[in-house]
């Protein structure tokens, strides 16, 4: 293809983005658009499956059968989200095995929030309420993203996530109505998950390397700081309603901006965890790598069986 032809295609592509057309897998797209989407969608898929670990860790200890069933259903939904997202990324020409390889080698990232440990039952509430709550804010913004398969996956995922968030909040509500030990457990979980949840929206806009290009391609529709502010404004009244205190002494309503001002985020901690040195980074990766390696013989068996069946079928056909 000549340079001029490529330039033409690029112009047409940019015009489609401006018109809010959806880009579909077979459409021409700039290589960088493809790569950026592979990076983001696979990162999102990895977050879903690594996210199964901290909650999976509480399935066997859930305090009641009702809670156990709800937690199992939630973790199962997350696995399902992982599946659609991997499929969406595959439409861009990468295989699931390649994506796993990138995850296991540390080349691909996943949401850093899952590198914090889930220590008590209240953490199941805090994760649902705050982590799924933050995820929804990010994801609702993505329902209008320009890449069709990703946008459609997001619409479906958002419905389930909002259910998870209500479920998490309901766990916190129940704890806050309970004995002092339960209230303390809920407050402690909020204390530990509040700041990492704010970090889920990523670095500040002026330090976010991908924001400008992603906004232009409508891969992102709002900036990190805008989404973070929206999350805080939405969550503070919810905490007040159930008698919990946000662990930020600088938190204050700002009438002028009609939003909360908040204290400084510890960006050193953020980068430490992103770079692989959070409390559970090594354990999470080890769990994923072990599951994959220990499962090799099972996947090989399934493949070999399928091949044998295929051959038998062909033989019968002859």
């Amino acid at each position: 293809m000549s340079e001029e032809q490529i330039k033409n295609l690029e112009e047409q592509f940019e015009a489609r983005i401006v018109r809010d057309d959806k880009i579909e897998p077979k459409d021409w797209m700039p290589e960088k658009y493809r790569q950026t989407h592979i990076r983001q969608i696979s990162q999102h898929a990895h977050s879903e499956i690594v996210g199964m670990l901290p909650e999976g860790n509480w399935i066997t200890r859930a305090p009641s059968l009702r809670r156990k069933v709800a937690l199992l259903a939630k973790v199962q939904d997350e696995g399902g989200h992982g599946l659609y997202l991997y499929s969406a990324a595959e439409t861009l020409g990468i295989s699931r095995d390649e994506m796993f390889e990138q995850l296991h080698s540390g080349k691909a990232k996943y949401s850093s929030i899952f590198n914090y440990p889930a220590l008590t039952w209240a953490d199941m509430g805090a994760i649902g309420w705050l982590v799924d709550g933050a995820a929804i804010i990010n994801q609702v913004a993505l329902c209008g993203t320009s890449y069709g398969p990703y946008a459609r996956a997001m619409v479906r995922i958002c419905k389930e996530e909002s259910f998870h968030q209500r479920q998490g909040y309901e766990i916190m509500l129940k704890l806050s109505e309970g004995a002092q030990e339960q209230k303390d457990m809920a407050q402690d979980a909020l204390n530990r998950f509040w700041w990492p949840s704010l970090m889920m929206f990523g670095p500040k806009d002026d330090e976010s390397p991908h924001t400008a290009q992603s906004m232009k391609w409508k891969l992102k529709r709002k900036t990190n700081d805008d989404l973070r502010q929206q999350f805080i404004d939405q969550t503070v009244p919810q905490a007040e309603l159930i008698g919990l205190t946000i662990p930020d002494p600088d938190l204050k309503w700002n009438e002028e901006k009609k939003g909360y001002d908040f204290g400084p985020i510890d960006w050193d901690e953020f980068w430490q965890v992103v770079k692989g040195h959070g409390p559970c980074n090594k354990e999470r990766m080890k769990a994923r790598v072990n599951a994959w390696e220990e499962g090799t013989w099972v996947r090989d068996a399934a493949m070999s069986y399928a091949e044998k069946q295929q051959k038998r079928k062909e033989k019968q056909a002859v």
């Binding site: 199964m52 156990k68 199992l72 599946l83 769990a287 599951a291 994959w292 499962g295 099972v298």
Partner: peptide, 13 residues
């Protein structure tokens, strides 16, 4: 329930 997140493939998980 002990297996959640540790299966040999996402589908079996």
């Amino acid at each position: 329930g002990e297996l959640c997140g540790h299966g040999p493939s996402l589908e079996t998980d």
